[in-house]
């Protein structure tokens, strides 16, 4: 199988395209390709000093970016979509904290219903967990309750089974059912200028590069 992937890759196809052509999941192709690349790298690097001034590879669209990121997106009244990626340092910290290789750590998705809550990690209305298959970096959350706000954590499990958060998403909403509300306090307060900021979730926030620097 890896021979086919290599052949297609040499033809200039992206992993995405190869996955489609071979009718395999992208994760699988990515995994095989990485493994192959690792095997290709000589185990004793000192024997082959890297040639200087190599023609720089053209930037090509990766499968994912090595950055700590989770994004939860609205979709239907009963489903949401979440994708994520880890940074090197998050993976290293998880390995070090649990003293376990990254590949051995279970990856778990935890969903919190945080409707009208200022969520700090422990005060959700309801939560549920999904054990993810390996090599997953996105998930369609199905059968959710309409008209609720959710947050998704990507994490792992401690040895005694507790959920341990590695990354936390933005909040996102499932659309409410039709005719679900005939009176709304929040819009009343907003109309009468009793509040300065909307009391509901607006999808977009100003992203700041130096967010943590005051």
């Amino acid at each position: 199988m890896i021979e086919d992937i290599v052949k297609l890759k040499e033809k200039g196809l992206t992993l995405q395209e190869i996955a489609q052509r071979m009718n395999m999941s992208l994760g699988k192709v990515q995994y095989r390709w990485n493994k192959y690349r690792q095997q290709q790298t000589p185990s004793k690097p000192e024997l082959t000093p890297p040639p200087k001034e190599v023609q720089q590879d053209k930037w090509s669209m990766p499968y994912e970016y090595a950055e700590a990121n989770v994004c939860l997106m609205p979709r239907t009244p009963d489903s949401l979509y979440v994708y994520w990626s880890f940074s090197e340092s998050i993976m290293q910290m998880a390995e070090q904290h649990f003293r376990t290789e990254w590949g051995e750590l279970p990856v778990v998705l935890k969903i919190y219903d945080v409707t009208d809550i200022h969520f700090y990690g422990h005060n959700a209305h309801r939560t549920f967990e999904i054990d993810l298959p390996p090599m997953t970096n996105n998930w369609f959350l199905q059968s959710l309750e309409p008209g609720r706000t959710f947050i998704a954590d990507i994490g792992t499990r401690t040895f005694d089974g507790s959920f341990f958060t590695l990354l936390r998403s933005n909040p996102a909403e499932t659309s409410p059912d039709p005719y679900s509300s005939f009176h709304d306090e929040k819009i009343e307060r907003w109309k009468h200028e009793d509040v300065k900021e909307p009391e509901w979730l607006e999808n977009f926030s100003t992203y700041s590069y130096y967010q943590k620097i005051r």
Binding site: E67, C71, M73, P74, T76, Y83, S85, Y207
Partner: peptide, 25 residues
């Protein structure tokens, strides 16, 4: 709903688009 623009066949796109947005900031 959003299902036409966000499903198994095209969901992979948003990761890249959002990454660009943050790079631009």
């Amino acid at each position: 709903t959003g299902e036409v623009w966000l499903n198994e066949s095209n969901a992979w796109m948003y990761r890249h688009l959002h990454h660009c947005e943050r790079k631009l900031v």
